[in-house]
Simulated scan of single mutants.
Amino acid sequence: MFTFSDICLRPAKAEERDHLWHFIYVENEWKVHDAPYFPLEHQSKFQFRRHLFKRLREAKTAIVIDYHGEAIGYLSCYWEDQSTRWLEVGITIFTSAHWGKQLGRKALTLWISHLFEHYDVERIGLTTWSGNPRMMKCAMALGMQEEGRIRKVRFHQGQYYDSLRYGVLRDEWQALRKKDGKLRCVG
């Protein structure tokens, strides 16, 4: 379990399975900003329990974001290319009631620090699209650099958007965190 201010990252609790499934596959307001150009592949509760929920319970490649005792979203990591140690992160905060409060920024600060401690990688990346300005702002506030912009490759609701790649190197991350000797958000 990791904490930063009012955010805690922790394994999912058994009794949260239906709550998490509901906010991912039924009441999925988050999908409006999280790659809406890709359809969400619905999973039954059984499939969810065997796949994502199992990862959330193990808390190694996915972990719950807890805000004042409530599971409000989750973080994940995945290999873009494990043979070259290219690790990416993702974040989902379920409802707009929790957006714009820097909760994602705090959660990502904890998660990225944890991943650098536990994985032998020199860089951690995050991919988003130009239709999600809050995620772009969050990445920059974390100290990530815009490393790539592929223009007009995401088509959504009759409009083209850019795909954006952000990344931070281990030494950059450590330097940002050493400024005041504790976990912090830079923005």
Rank of each mutant, 00 (worst) to 15 (best):
residue 60 K to F: 01
residue 60 K to I: 06
residue 60 K to R: 11
residue 61 T to E: 04
residue 61 T to S: 07
residue 61 T to W: 00
residue 61 T to A: 02
residue 62 A to H: 01
residue 62 A to E: 01
residue 62 A to S: 06
residue 62 A to L: 01
residue 62 A to N: 01
residue 62 A to T: 02
residue 63 I to T: 03
residue 63 I to N: 01
residue 63 I to H: 00
residue 64 V to F: 04
residue 64 V to D: 01
residue 64 V to T: 09
residue 64 V to Q: 02
residue 65 I to F: 03
residue 65 I to C: 07
residue 65 I to T: 10
residue 65 I to H: 04
residue 65 I to A: 04
residue 66 D to I: 06
residue 66 D to H: 07
residue 66 D to L: 07
residue 66 D to M: 07
residue 67 Y to W: 13
residue 67 Y to A: 04
residue 68 H to P: 01
residue 68 H to T: 13
residue 69 G to A: 12
residue 69 G to R: 13
residue 70 E to N: 14
residue 70 E to K: 15
residue 70 E to F: 04
residue 70 E to L: 12
residue 71 A to Q: 13
residue 71 A to D: 09
residue 71 A to Y: 08
residue 72 I to D: 04
residue 72 I to H: 05
residue 72 I to A: 09
residue 73 G to N: 05
residue 73 G to W: 00
residue 74 Y to I: 11
residue 74 Y to F: 15
residue 75 L to H: 00
residue 75 L to E: 03
residue 75 L to F: 02
residue 76 S to D: 09
residue 76 S to M: 09
residue 76 S to L: 03
residue 77 C to Y: 07
residue 77 C to A: 12
residue 77 C to I: 02
residue 77 C to V: 08
residue 78 Y to C: 09
residue 78 Y to Q: 06
residue 78 Y to M: 12
residue 78 Y to F: 14
residue 79 W to A: 11
residue 79 W to L: 11
residue 79 W to T: 10
residue 79 W to E: 09
residue 79 W to H: 09
residue 80 E to N: 13
residue 80 E to P: 00
residue 80 E to G: 09
residue 81 D to H: 13
residue 81 D to M: 13
residue 81 D to T: 14
residue 82 Q to G: 03
residue 82 Q to P: 01
residue 82 Q to N: 11
residue 82 Q to H: 12
residue 83 S to C: 06
residue 83 S to I: 11
residue 83 S to F: 08
residue 83 S to N: 08
residue 84 T to N: 11
residue 84 T to I: 15
residue 85 R to Y: 07
residue 85 R to I: 09
residue 85 R to F: 06
residue 85 R to K: 15
residue 85 R to W: 01
residue 85 R to Q: 13
residue 86 W to D: 11
residue 86 W to A: 15
residue 86 W to E: 13
residue 86 W to L: 14
residue 86 W to K: 15
residue 86 W to S: 15
residue 87 L to G: 09
residue 87 L to H: 12
residue 87 L to W: 11
residue 87 L to P: 07
residue 88 E to D: 07
residue 88 E to N: 02
residue 88 E to F: 01
residue 88 E to C: 02
residue 88 E to V: 11
residue 88 E to G: 02
residue 88 E to Q: 08
residue 89 V to N: 05
residue 89 V to L: 06
residue 89 V to I: 14
residue 89 V to G: 03
residue 90 G to N: 03
residue 90 G to K: 03
residue 90 G to A: 08
residue 90 G to Y: 02
residue 90 G to H: 05
residue 90 G to T: 06
residue 91 I to R: 00
residue 91 I to W: 02
residue 91 I to M: 05
residue 92 T to D: 02
residue 92 T to G: 05
residue 92 T to P: 03
residue 92 T to K: 07
residue 92 T to N: 04
residue 92 T to L: 04
